[in-house]
Amino acid sequence: MNNYPFGSQAPKSFPAYPKTEFDLESGTAIKRTRKPKNSPFHPLRMIKSFGNRFHHFFKLHPLMGLFLALCFVLALAMILSLYGTQYGVQSGGYVKSDMGFDDYPFSKLQNLVMVAGHSIYTSSSCGKIEKEDSWFLESYQKNPGQAATFVTHIHEGIEIVARDDSALLLFSGGETRRDAGPRSEAQSYWAVADSKGWFGKEESVKWRALTEEHARDSFENLLFSVCRFRELTGTYPQNITFVMENRVGALEKLASDQGEKLTDVM
C-alpha cells in the first residue's frame, strides 16, 4: 500500500464530470453564457388571466361578484355624468357648455311663433308657389287650393312675428317625403317666404326667421320647436303661437303638462 504524503507530491483529483459542457471529439470545454429570462408584457394574456380569476371568484362568491360588478357600473356612470356636465355634444364635436346668457344669438327673444310644414316645395323656381303641381302632395292633399293654404300659413306666421318684436319665427318640418329627395318642409317654407320678399316684412322678420328640420308630425313640430328655441335663445319661450292645420289634440295636452301659454292659428 502506497502512502502519499500531504503536500505538493499528492496526486490531484481528476474532474470526471466538468461543470461546463464538454465536447468529446475536440476535448475542449464549451462555454455558454446563460441568457437572462425575459418576461415580455402580454396585455391580452393578462386580461384573460384576470377574467379567469374573476370568473372563478364569481362562481365561489356569486353575491359578492354581483355586488362588485354593480359598484363598477355605478362608478363608471358617475364619471360619465360628471364629464357630460362639463362638455356638451354639438355638431359632431365637444364644446364647453358653460355658455353665458348673452352668448346665445337670439337671447333677447322671448316668444315662439311656429309654422308647421305639411309639404315640400319641389319646383325649380318659386314662380308657381300656389300651384299644386309645385308641391309634393300626398293623395289626401291633392285638393284645389291646398297649395294656397300653405302660402297662407307662411304669410300668417310672418304677420304675427312682425307685430311682436320679441318673437322668434320657426318653420318646422323634416324630410318627410322620400321621393322628394333631401329637402325638408321647413326649408321649403323658408324659401317660399324669401321668394315672396317676406310679404313686405323682410327687414323686421327675416333676421329672426329660422328652421327646425327634424319633426315628422304635429306633436314633434311643437316639441322640437321648443327645443330649437332653447338652443337659440338659452331659455324656453314664455308664449307659443303655432300656425298649422287642425291637429291640436296632442299639442294641447303637451301644453297643459308644461304650463305653457299656447295660441293656435289655423
Rank of each mutant, 00 (worst) to 15 (best):
T28G: 01
K48Q: 13
A29Y: 10
L82V: 08
A255Q: 10
E203N: 12
I79P: 00
K128L: 02
S107E: 03
F41Y: 15
T235V: 08
S97T: 15
E132A: 14
F150S: 02
G117C: 01
M1E: 05
A69T: 13
R230V: 02
F58D: 10
L170G: 02
R34W: 11
T176V: 15
R177T: 04
L70W: 12
L251P: 00
I158R: 05
L170D: 00
V161F: 05
H61G: 00
A180V: 05
E138N: 13
G27P: 02
D179K: 15
I158P: 03
T263E: 11
V151K: 09
P5Q: 09
E203K: 15
V248N: 10
D103Y: 03
L68E: 10
I120S: 07
R45I: 07
F50I: 08
F58W: 14
Y140M: 05
L222Y: 13
M99N: 05
F101D: 08
I158M: 04
Y83S: 10
F229E: 02
I240C: 02
G84K: 12
E132L: 10
A116D: 01
F106R: 03
F57G: 05
F229A: 05
Q110W: 00
L60A: 15
K37D: 04
G157N: 02
T28P: 00
S172Y: 09
A191S: 14
K108L: 01
Y140D: 14
P237S: 10
W135Y: 09
L74K: 15
L169F: 08
F219N: 08
A29R: 14
Q146Y: 14
R177G: 03
L109M: 10
F6S: 11
N52G: 07
